[in-house]
Amino acid sequence: MSNIGLIIEERAADIGNFLVGRLLPFRQKRAVGPFVFIDHMGPSALKDYENLDVPPHPHIGLSTLTYLFEGAIFHRDSIGSAMEIEPGAVNWMTAGKGVVHSERTPEYLRTTDKNLHGFQIWVALPKDMEQSEPTFHHIGAEEIPIWAEGNTQYKLIAGEAFGRKSPVPVHSKMFFIEIKTQTAQKLKIGEELYGEVGLYVLNGKVNIEGNDYGIKQLMIAKNAQLCEFETSDNCTVYLFGGEPFDDERFIYWNFVSSDRALIEEAKVNWKNQNYDAFPLVPGDNDEYVPLPETGLNVKNRS
Rank of each mutant, 00 (worst) to 15 (best):
I7H: 02
I8H: 03
A13T: 06
L19N: 13
L19V: 14
V20Q: 01
G21P: 01
G21H: 02
L24R: 00
Q28D: 14
F35C: 06
V36H: 02
V36R: 02
M41N: 01
S44Q: 13
P58V: 04
T66A: 03
T66M: 03
Y67W: 14
E70D: 15
S78Q: 07
S78M: 05
M83W: 10
M83A: 13
G88M: 01
A89H: 04
A89F: 02
N91Q: 14
M93D: 04
T94V: 14
K97L: 02
K97C: 04
G98V: 11
G98C: 10
V99Q: 04
S102K: 04
T105N: 08
T105C: 05
R110Y: 03
T112R: 15
N115A: 13
N115G: 13
N115P: 01
H117F: 14
G118W: 00
I121K: 02
V123K: 07
L125P: 11
D128V: 11
M129D: 13
H137C: 10
G140F: 06
A148G: 13
A148E: 15
E149S: 15
N151K: 15
L156G: 08
L156I: 10
I157S: 02
A158N: 10
G159N: 12
F162Q: 11
R164N: 12
P169C: 10
Q182N: 14
T183Y: 12
A184W: 02
Q185G: 04
K188H: 11
E196W: 05
V197D: 06
Y200K: 00
L202K: 01
G204L: 03
G204C: 05
V206T: 11
I208Q: 05
E209W: 03
G214L: 05
G214C: 08
I215E: 12
I215R: 13
K216G: 00
I220P: 05
K222I: 04
A224Q: 08
L226K: 15
E228C: 12
F229P: 02
E230Y: 01
V237N: 03
V237R: 01
P244H: 08
F255S: 06
S258W: 03
R260E: 14
I263V: 12
A266M: 06
K267E: 13
N269A: 15
W270I: 08
W270M: 06
Y275E: 15
D276V: 11
V281E: 04
G283S: 07
D284G: 06
P292R: 07
T294W: 08
N297P: 03
R301W: 03
S302R: 13
